[in-house]
Amino acid sequence: MKEKKAKRIVYRSEREMPLMVISVGSQTHNLTGAWRNIRPEIDLEKCLKCGICWKFCPEPAIEIVDERPVVDYDYCKGCGICAEECPAKCIVMAEERK
């Protein structure tokens, strides 16, 4: 998960700009986690290992690490689809801590 994080590449002038769009996740410098008001918290005790939260994450900010869902809070926008869709109801949307 860690190697995904990219620094924003800043171009001083238009001439330095590449002719092609840089691919391979160059947008990951944009930490959208700051948009969030409520945060998903997964209770792994109740987890059924169905992968539904991973399947329906629109970011995708939920990753499967060692067969467990892990939320990447740098990018999670707090939409709450995972909590709504979880069949075991083991994801709770909690108030964001300051």
Partner: peptide, 9 residues
């Protein structure tokens, strides 16, 4: 990859 500019949900 995450970090895109879509609305929540």
């Amino acid at each position: 990859s995450p970090g895109h500019l879509a609305c929540q949900g």
